[in-house]
Amino acid sequence: MDKGMSILVVDDFPTMRRIVRSLLKELGFTNVEEAEDGQEALGKLKGGDFEFVVSDWNMPNLDGLEMLKQIRADEAMKALPVLMVTAEAKKENIVAAAQAGANGYIVKPFTAATLEEKLNKIFEKLGK
């Protein structure tokens, strides 16, 4: 796994963005950018060369699920791995995210170990 890969962290709460960014740094990923909702994220994704997305679900303007659907519908971005990190803890949420093409699902509150495990699992599957 390339620790220099560029990662976009999407969450409407600045505290959570800082936490996720620090955890990623702790795991060795330092090339991290942030967006505060799905809309801003899509703009950044279209303009930049991102290789991984960590996203919240419940956000204003454009939520995480809608953003995921739009990523999967976009020819240039459809293969982009997306890890959902969200407080939404209903079974139908997890099913909907999986069906929309999420590569992983972490329910908040989560631990550093969980984030590491899911990242490893996703890259293992992708063969990176």
Binding site: D63, A89, K90, E92, Y105, K108
Partner: peptide, 30 residues
Amino acid sequence: ASLVNGPQLTAEGEGIVSNQDQVDDLLDEL
């Protein structure tokens, strides 16, 4: 939208997963 509810106040309840293991199990099942 019924999919945007925020954190569950209690871990019990119909159709609610209470921890990461249950999320993983559900995804495995699917």
